[in-house]
């Protein structure tokens, strides 16, 4: 990476404090983090260390108590919830542990959801949704409802949904946490392809060291601070 490149994501002194009644919990305590465009990062750490909290801040789902988060030059702190929603729709693809598909919609219509927020025609939306499904190898299951798909297939549909509006950043919270080894490997390979071939920047939380190996680098969060950084063996 050229040293002059501004990072896609830049966190400076990010703190997050939750209040539970009288008590307050400092979940994140002064996080500084740069993520370059095209990177694939595995974020690891014990349960409760604040990984999901950090993803939520970067994805614009939540606001930090202190510090600043900027993504692609956009400072997120000042945005209203409506501005954040519009920004998320354009810039971030989310992938969750439990897929979070809408059960009453077919795979294709699930993938189409983010496009409903655009001005694309119905035809164009359908076309793009099918393209995204093809990219994850599920074009043949477009008409199936989530209940008719396996866990791995559901996660592929979720990935297609995250990709369909062509965001630069994919945020994945334990995307293989609910899958068996073999299926997990398939999903991780898919993410790797998206990173290598399509240039998507990926930030992935995982508990699984094997999964983390698919990433370009790993960062570790412990008790709200970034602990150490190590290069992973996830090269092409």
């Amino acid at each position: 990476m050229p040293a002059t490149a501004t990072p896609l994501i830049a966190l400076r002194g990010v703190c997050k404090r939750y209040f539970r009644g009288q008590q307050s919990v400092d979940v994140l305590q002064g996080i500084d983090l740069d993520i370059e465009e095209g990177d694939f990062i595995a974020l690891m750490g014990p349960s409760g260390s604040g990984k999901t909290t950090l993803l939520n801040l970067i994805g614009g789902l939540d606001q930090p108590t202190a510090g600043s988060v900027s993504v692609d030059g956009q400072r997120l702190e000042g945005l209203t919830s409506a501005e954040l929603a519009a920004w998320r729709a354009r810039n971030i693809g989310f992938i969750f542990q439990f897929y979070n598909l809408l059960p009453m919609l077919s795979a294709r219509r699930n993938v189409e959801l983010p496009l409903l927020l655009t001005s694309l025609s119905a035809r164009e939306r359908k076309h793009r949704a099918l393209l995204a499904l093809e990219l994850v190898g599920l074009a043949a299951r477009a008409q199936h409802k989530p209940a008719e798909l396996s866990g791995g297939e559901e996660q592929r549909v979720a990935i297609a949904r995250a990709l369909v509006s062509d965001p630069r950043l994919l945020i994945c919270d334990e995307p293989t946490g609910d899958l068996d080894r073999h299926t997990a490997d398939e999903i991780l390979s898919l993410l790797q392809v998206l990173n290598h071939r399509h240039g998507k920047t990926i930030l992935m939380v995982t508990h699984d060291p094997k999964a983390a190996e698919y990433a370009r680098r790993q960062i570790h969060l412990d008790k709200g601070v970034l602990a150490r950084e190590a290069d992973a063996g996830g090269g092409a």
Partner: peptide, 12 residues
């Protein structure tokens, strides 16, 4: 599900 829609960018 509603939270997922919001995540995807559906405004309040």
């Amino acid at each position: 599900e509603l939270a997922v829609l919001k995540t995807l960018g559906f405004g309040n």
